[in-house]
C-alpha cells in the first residue's frame, strides 16, 4: 500500500507525504472495511481504498478539521463506493453470481465459531441469516447508516457528516433498519 502511495509532494497545506503515510497506516484497515461492507468485493474494496487515500491526499488542503480525519475519509470512501456502484454496469450479474457466496462464507464462519455446541451454532446461524436478509432489504443509504453505526460505531453526527445528510435522516435510516430486522424475525 505504501509503495503505491509515493506521490510527489504538492504545495497544498496540511500533511506532507511522510505524515500522510501515517494517516494511511492508521486508517487503511477501517476504510477498507467500510468499503468492503459497502461493496462485498475484495478487489473493488482494495482499489477504492487506494483511490480514497489518493483523493484525500490531493484534497488535504481542503480539510479544515471540522470533523475527525476518520469521518472525512469515510465520507470520501462512501462517495467513491456510490460512484462505483452507479457506474458498475455488471452489478446485477455480480450480485446474481457472487453475492450469495460472501453471505455463505459469513454464515459458515459463524458456524465454525459455534462448532462445539451444535444447538448454539444453529441459533447463531439463524440470527446471522436473519440479519443478513434484513440488511438486504434496506436501501444503499440505509445500509451505509447501519454499517457505520453498528459496525464502525460512529456517532450519529459523524455518520451524518460522512453521508452528507441530517442527523434526523440517519436516525430514520437506523429506525428503518431495526424495523426490517424485527420484520424479518416475525416472518420466520
Amino acid at each position: 500500500m505504501e509503495e503505491t502511495l509515493l506521490i510527489p509532494a504538492m504545495s497544498h497545506p496540511g500533511w506532507n507525504a511522510a505524515e500522510f503515510d501515517d494517516v494511511v497506516r492508521e486508517h487503511q484497515a477501517r476504510i477498507y472495511r467500510v468499503l468492503w461492507c459497502e461493496l462485498r468485493d475484495d478487489e473493488a474494496a482494495a482499489n477504492l481504498t487506494q483511490d480514497c487515500f489518493l483523493k484525500a491526499y490531493r484534497a488535504r488542503g481542503e480539510f479544515r478539521g471540522e470533523c475527525s480525519v476518520h469521518t472525512w475519509l469515510v465520507r470520501i470512501a462512501i462517495n467513491l463506493a456510490r460512484d462505483y456502484q452507479r457506474n458498475r454496469r455488471q452489478g446485477f450479474w455480480r450480485r446474481m453470481l457472487g453475492g450469495n457466496a460472501k453471505e455463505a462464507e459469513l454464515a459458515a464462519e459463524m458456524a465454525e465459531d459455534e462448532a462445539p455446541r451444535a444447538d448454539r451454532a444453529l441459533i447463531a446461524r439463524e440470527q446471522l441469516q436473519q440479519t443478513m436478509d434484513a440488511v438486504k432489504t434496506l436501501s444503499p443509504q440505509q445500509q451505509t447508516a447501519f454499517h457505520l453505526r453498528y459496525l464502525e460505531e460512529l456517532p450519529l453526527e459523524e455518520i451524518a457528516e460522512a453521508m452528507g445528510v441530517e442527523i434526523g435522516t440517519v436516525k430514520s435510516h437506523l429506525s428503518r433498519a431495526v424495523h426490517a430486522l424485527r420484520q424479518q424475525r416475525d416472518e420466520r
Binding site: 477498507y32 461492507c37 474494496a45 462464507e105 447463531a124 440470527q127 446471522l128 424475525r185
Partner: peptide
C-alpha cells in the same frame, strides 16, 4: 436484535479483515 447485529458485525469485521 442485539445478538443478531453483534454476530453480523463480528462476522463482517472478521471477513473484511481476512480479505484485507
Amino acid at each position: 436484535l442485539r445478538d443478531g447485529v453483534l454476530r453480523y458485525s463480528l462476522a463482517v469485521k472478521r471477513q473484511a479483515a481476512r480479505s484485507q
